[in-house]
């Protein structure tokens, strides 16, 4: 029998992480260093998100995990099982029923409520990292609010591509103070960063936690003459017909045939269950699991 402490981590570690989370909530967008633990999965596989989830979960929570919108990828399944085993919490694929949602690279389509927590998995927390390799220098830039370099990145995009080419991990300014990397979510999701739920960001390898409390101002950076646009593929979901959700593109054959489907599997499934059908959709019962 496996005798794990609740959610795997010991109580002192969870306390340390919660302190970091509280600090992060008190200073929206500010990267709080924390003592990231060795987890039973390698760095780069969501250890930051897992540690944050472990610290906030209570036995009464209902836990959902999505990986690029889908509940059924290997990683999402593994992490869900991990918490089932070590915390014994109930799990769900329905966004509306979850109290804690851990996500990699997407925000669910359905708006979250005040009683929900969204935990993001973050690879590189520092939005300036690729422009300024020095950690000492980027910390200074954040503390002195010297963000000119961030706009240089956007300038470079426009000069090279005619538009701001950043399609994901699009930098935002939080509560008018800190510039933050919202993790590699598509820029389409950026407007959702202003929400009623609590947002927590964990980067295990880089050992940083940051947070955005409910109803916080989150503005995507842009230029006056090149304003931010949350774009998506100009298509409807071929399964459920949704026109407002972010889509995955699937290549079907060697002849260039492709189909688009909602990246958020729960959202798509719920729509199909309600009777919506897209161009290539079949009623839910006939869909292979």
């Amino acid at each position: 029998m496996s005798d794990y402490n609740f959610a795997y981590l010991d109580e002192q570690t969870k306390r340390m992480i919660r302190r970091a989370i509280l600090k992060g909530l008190a200073i929206p967008g500010y990267q709080v260093p924390f003592a990231s633990r060795e987890m039973p999965m390698p760095y780069g596989w969501g250890t930051g998100g897992v540690q944050v989830s472990a610290a906030v979960l209570t036995p009464e929570d209902r836990f959902k995990v999505i990986d690029q919108g889908a509940d059924d990828t290997t990683n999402a399944v593994s992490i869900r099982r991990f918490f089932e085993k070590t915390a014994g919490v109930a799990v769900t694929e329905a966004t509306t029923e979850a109290s804690v949602i851990q996500t990699r690279h997407r925000i669910p389509e359905l708006p979250l409520r005040e009683d929900q927590i969204l935990v993001y998995q973050v690879p590189i927390p520092e939005p300036l990292r690729f422009l300024e390799p020095s950690e000492v220098e980027t910390r200074k830039m954040h503390s002195l609010e010297e963000y000119g370099l961030m706009h240089v990145k956007l300038y470079e995009d426009i000069s090279q591509h005619g538009a701001i080419a950043t399609a994901y991990a699009y930098p935002v300014k939080v509560e008018g103070r800190y510039v933050m990397d919202p993790s590699p979510i598509p820029k389409f999701d950026n407007p959702k960063l202003e929400m009623a739920g609590i947002q927590l960001f964990g980067a295990g390898r880089e050992q940083r936690i940051y947070a955005v409390p409910p109803y916080t101002q989150v503005v995507s950076l842009d230029f006056d003459d090149y304003p931010f646009e949350p774009t998506k593929a100009d298509h409807a979901c071929d399964l459920c017909g949704a026109t407002e959700s972010y889509l995955d593109e699937l290549i079907m054959d060697d002849a260039g045939g492709r189909m688009f489907m909602c990246s958020d599997t729960d959202y798509c499934g719920a729509r199909r269950a309600a009777g919506h059908l897209g161009a290539q959709g079949a009623p839910l019962a006939e869909d292979a699991a």
């Binding site: 963000y147 240089v152 470079e156 000069s159």
Partner: peptide, 27 residues
């Protein structure tokens, strides 16, 4: 200089650092 940033970006950086926010004008 920032060697991995274009000439225009290098010259524009100081302007952007003092809140210039119009791409066309910066260019």
């Amino acid at each position: 200089l920032r060697m991995n940033v274009s000439a225009g970006g290098n010259v524009g950086e100081r302007l952007m650092a003092v809140n210039a926010r119009h791409y066309g004008e910066i260019r």
